[in-house]
């Protein structure tokens, strides 16, 4: 697995990487040098999220030890915003004439998938889900079905970017906090909105444990706009035996009650929130899953990333991950040590 995120997650030891923080209400990715991953002739046309997505996918494959990549399945809520914005702007600026096709091509939601397939010669199944807080989650469901159908492996991931323009657009409908909020203090004051984020996360999944498996996904559920009772029942059922809970808590007062319900349901189990690390975005759930798998694999928590917590659990054997996107798409996962 691999992640490019607002933290230094791509290279180096995450257990000693300091917490990246800002009070801009926007957590942008720490970007690596792309040249070792992407040929210069391809790189020249790519915009940011394409580079971030493709490079994360390639790093994930490199680290997996798998030679032949099977199906490629991704999720993205917004695709390449930079290209979409550029094409809208150029249509206006050049009055619909002499338009460069590249931003149009790259604005297509499955363009990252196409690029990954091109670079690794992946000719198997290829799909892209574009459903807000269910984008990565549907990609995961699709991958689990593919493995059950006999695929040897799947490359499964998510990518999201935030641009200055889109940050402003979403601020007009209350996505972000009004006051500048340091991500270290995200959970201190509950006010409407959260802080924006972005990132790419990829996993190489197999149907049976391999020597280098990081973790096992043993439970998974998506709930669309669920009633509180339905959500509570699902959480209670899936929490059995969990010794750590990862939550998508994001400081947004409007939807905090879902997480408070979790506190009430599972009072004795330690919790780690992760949105101060990756910011809020459509596919933040993929980052949560990456963090859970890191903890299970290393049997260690990157404690330096949680300065706001007094008691940090040393390790975990079974993790319940609960995340929702602005109260609409709720996802619950169970991750276990292999």
């Amino acid at each position: 697995m691999a992640a490019i995120s607002p933290q230094t997650t791509f290279q180096g030891d995450i257990f000693s990487a300091p917490l990246v923080h800002t009070d801009k209400n926007l957590l942008a990715c720490v970007e690596p040098d792309y040249k070792p991953f992407i040929p210069a002739n391809s790189l020249r046309r790519m915009t940011r999220v394409l580079k971030i997505g493709l490079t994360t996918a390639l790093q994930c494959i490199n680290g997996s030890g798998v030679e032949t990549i099977g199906p490629i399945v991704t999720g993205t809520g917004k695709g390449s915003l930079q290209d979409t914005e550029k094409f809208i702007r150029e249509i206006e600026q050049y009055k619909e004439t002499a338009l460069n096709p590249t931003p149009f091509i790259q604005s297509t939601y499955n363009s990252v998938n196409g690029l990954i397939a091109l670079q690794v010669k992946g000719t198997a199944y290829n799909n892209t889900f574009v459903h807000r807080g269910f984008s990565f989650e549907n990609a995961l469901l699709d991958s689990m079905m593919l493995l059950a159908e006999g695929a040897p492996n799947t490359l499964t991931g998510a990518f999201e970017e935030i641009t200055a323009e889109h940050f402003y657009i979403k601020s007009r409908i209350g996505f972000w906090k009004d006051a500048p909020t340091d991500n270290r203090a995200l959970y201190e004051t509950l006010t409407p909105g959260s802080i924006a984020g972005e990132g790419a996360t990829f996993f190489l999944l197999t149907g049976t444990p391999a020597p280098n498996s990081k973790a096992a996904l043993t439970g998974f559920k998506m709930l669309y706009k669920p009633a509180e009772a339905k959500l509570a029942a699902a959480l209670a059922e899936m929490a059995a035996g969990a010794d750590l809970v990862l939550t998508g808590r994001n400081g947004d007062s409007r939807y905090e009650h879902y997480y408070q319900q979790l506190d009430t349901l599972l009072p004795g189990i330690p919790q780690l929130p992760f949105k101060h690390l990756c910011g809020e975005h459509d596919t933040a759930g993929a980052f949560g899953m990456w963090l859970g798998a890191q903890i299970l694999h290393a049997q260690q928590v990157p404690a330096q990333w949680f300065p706001m917590l007094k008691d940090i659990p040393a390790t975990a054997g079974k993790i319940l991950l609960y995340n929702h996107f602005y109260g609409e798409q709720h996802a619950i996962m169970v991750l276990e040590r292999v």
């Binding site: 002739n41 050049y94 002499a98 338009l99 460069n100 096709p101 590249t102 091509i105």
Partner: peptide, 17 residues
């Protein structure tokens, strides 16, 4: 230069602009 069909469209845009 190793250009492809998308580059050819971009070069036509260059000629036009």
């Amino acid at each position: 230069l190793g250009l492809d069909s998308i580059d050819s469209l971009e070069l036509m845009v260059l000629l036009e602009r």
